[in-house]
Design a protein around this nucleic acid. Structure first.
Length: 457
RNA sequence: GGCGGGUUAGCAAAGUGGCUAUGCAGCGGAUUGCAAAUCCGUCUACGUCGGUUCGAUUCCGGCACCCGCCUCCA
């Protein structure tokens, strides 16, 4: 049985879908104003893994991941670039898809965009106003009265009184309480806006997710996820909005992915210590890079922070290479039905069912790698590939992955020349060629039977 | 200040009240013209001080250090 750590209860709980056999999952997606970094990628890779594993486990998963395409940062960036907002968000959404594809992320079932759900947001805001939870402020904004929602703070375990006492809550005379947050922002000159019974304006940040969850997945979700930093205030506010307006439970299981750090500090745009996925991938081999990053990101448990360095990434890449080598040497049998009774398959499943313990699952893959190597068994090799496939790994062509490139005539000519030199016992010449190739990043492997294989480092 | 998470061998990273996690690197050996790859073997663990227990890295408490949220943030 699948268990999942629920941020709400701080306990591992069994997954009990509202509709048996089906799982609804919403993950807060990116704000598309810039390329995103490997820390952002971690969260989406984690939930892609969850999506794949639940699907492999037999659930029909309705997976929604939104695109936030209206927001202060987008407006700011578009103005700085001197381009229309729509052009910026289109460009960045396309870039996002490119990056996600390279990391082998599946497209979610639904990818709603905030600007397409403004009516749904206004609907919820109106319900909140009718219940006296939302109010119109003198400046034309509509705010959520946090004190009217009894459960406020239950997710992040923050006490509203403590928050008031803190220094970080900004004072705003338009708000009745400093904790109140904007549901609707009155239109300002040169900003996009929509008509509404609250006047022209645009939505606050948190309301979009409440509206899109409801529109796409329904009023109560099995799973809602996001990065750890979204717990407060974003997810807390989503709960307040949805439960405040609709009057029933919003989400059964809250999942939060831990940070990816750099120099043991959270990687973030505001700290400036980030690497975009593009930068990282451009330093890696084009054939292998995407899967290497994915493997690296899933090597740590999703609730543990991981530290990004080139060395830890290379460590993961070497480990992945070891598995692909075995898949190349022992081609997986075709058309095999996965045998869950196999002890290693059972252990893999047990690890994944236990709150998605990918590090433990990987340990099983390594043991299986050794078994395949030892036995040369194509069925076991197929099992290895199939298990990896359940979390989006090991599906590349092994020969291409190991060589790191499509066959190159240039390299092959040098390899042939070296083999001729070897036959003539001209080892000096043979070594010189190997050294040249090494300088080009090509490593040779002499195999039994006079066959020489090569691969990119 | 409030709340929360963490500290496992050279590095990375799971897990467990008593039974070799695992990966990468290192070292020794086999193999190889030399390498690479592979195989065999092998060395480093559970922050600190107490408590509970027959027994604690694992449970409880104190301490130290690190990190996060409380403001946009994956």
């Amino acid at each position: 049985m699948q268990t999942i750590y629920n941020t709400l209860s701080r306990l591992k709980e069994p997954l009990k879908p509202i509709v048996p056999g089906r799982v609804s999952m919403y993950v807060c997606g990116p704000t598309v104003y810039d390329y995103f970094h490997i820390g952002n990628a971690r969260t989406f890779t984690v939930f892609d893994m969850v999506y794949r594993w639940l699907t492999a486990s037999g659930y029909r998963v309705d997976y929604a991941r939104n695109v936030t395409d209206i927001d202060d940062k987008i407006i700011e960036r578009a103005n700085a670039n001197g381009e229309p907002i729509g052009a910026l968000t289109e460009r960045m959404t396309a870039a996002m898809h490119e990056d996600f594809d390279r990391l082998k992320l599946l497209r979610p079932t639904f990818e709603p965009r905030a600007t397409q759900h403004v009516a749904g947001m206004l609907d919820i805001i109106r319900m909140l106003e009718d219940k006296g939870i939302a109010y119109r402020a003198p400046n034309g904004d509509v705010y959520y009265a946090v004190r009217k929602f009894a459960g406020y703070g239950k997710l992040s375990r923050k006490n509203p009184d403590d928050l008031i006492a803190g220094e970080r809550v900004a004072v705003d005379t338009n708000k009745r309480d400093p904790l109140d947050f904007a549901l609707w922002k009155a239109a300002k000159p040169q900003e996009p806006h929509w008509p509404s019974l609250f006047g022209n304006g645009r939505p606050g940040w948190h309301i979009e997710c409440s509206a899109m969850c409801r529109a796409v997945l329904g009023e109560t979700l099995d799973i809602h996820g996001g990065g750890w930093d979204l717990q407060f205030p974003h997810h807390e506010n989503e709960i307040a909005q949805s439960e405040g307006a609709l009057g029933h439970a919003f989400v059964n299981l809250w999942m939060h992915a831990a940070f990816l750090n750099f120099d043991s500090e959270k990687m973030s745009k505001s700290l400036g210590n980030f690497f975009t996925i593009r930068e990282v991938l451009n330093k890696l081999n084009p054939v292998r890079g995407g899967e290497e990053v994915r493997f690296f990101l899933l090597r740590g448990h999703y609730r543990s922070e991981i530290n990004y360095t080139y060395d830890t990434l290379m460590d993961a890449a070497n480990a992945l290479m070891g598995i692909y080598r075995v898949l190349k040497d022992v081609p997986p049998a075709q058309g095999i039905v996965l045998d869950w009774a196999h002890p290693l398959a059972a252990r893999f499943k047990a690890a994944m069912d236990d709150d998605f313990d990918t590090p433990a699952a990987f340990a099983v893959l390594f043991e299986l790698r050794d078994e395949v190597r030892r036995s040369g068994d194509a069925h076991l090799s197929a099992l290895l590939k199939a298990l990896g496939g359940m979390i989006g790994l090991l599906q590349a062509d092994p020969a291409a992955f190991v060589s790191g490139a499509e066959a190159s005539i240039n390299v092959q000519a040098l390899v042939d020349e070296r083999n001729a030199a070897k036959k003539a016992k001209d080892f000096a010449r043979a070594d010189a060629i190997r050294k040249d190739l090494d300088a080009m990043g090509i490593v040779l492997e002499d195999k039994p039977g006079g066959v020489t294989e090569w691969r990119k480092k």
